[in-house]
């Protein structure tokens, strides 16, 4: 039995050691905001926060995540940075199909909180490894800066 702390709640999950955190979240706990796009760490759709920092849930055996504080997009409904990002993503048309969005939001939030969202070049560099196939990224880059401005006020 695996013991995982997710969005502040303890879970006991009858998962095999080989299951990735992404798989456990999605298929055992129904937390499907975490999406799988490549299972190789290349696309960023599966980002979750571990102890506050984004990691790839597809590259983390859930067994390794025991004892850590895991947060998914579902756990950030009341987060101020996420609220600013949601508003900015809609205003800047930073999503189309929505599949990359959760992972993108978590990466963007981290950029803002680490102070790496001052200009477009910094945001673009910081979004390395976050693939979006729909938008061409301009809306995302604008939205991250917009949210950063909102939060700095």
């Amino acid at each position: 039995m695996m013991r995982l702390t997710i969005n502040g709640t303890g879970h006991q999950v009858p998962a095999e050691p080989r299951e990735s955190l992404a798989h456990v979240l999605r298929d055992r706990l129904g937390l499907t905001a975490t999406r799988l796009g490549c299972a190789q760490g290349s696309c960023g759709a599966c980002n979750v926060l571990v102890d506050g920092s984004p990691v790839r849930a597809c590259l983390l055996p859930a067994s390794l995540a025991e004892g850590e504080d895991i947060t998914t997009l579902e756990g950030l409904r009341d987060d101020a940075a996420m609220a600013a990002l949601r508003e900015a993503f809609q205003a800047e048309h930073a999503l189309q199909c929505g599949y990359c969005t959760a992972g993108m939001l978590l990466a963007a939030r981290d950029l803002i909180l680490r102070g790496r969202a001052h200009d477009a070049a910094q945001v673009r560099a910081g979004l390395a490894g976050q693939l979006c196939r729909c938008t061409g990224y301009d809306g995302i880059v604008a939205a991250v800066q917009r949210a950063a401005r909102t939060l700095s006020r």
Partner: peptide, 9 residues
């Protein structure tokens, strides 16, 4: 090296 979420682990 790779991407920040990978670098975090």
């Amino acid at each position: 090296i790779a991407y920040r979420p990978v670098r975090n682990r």
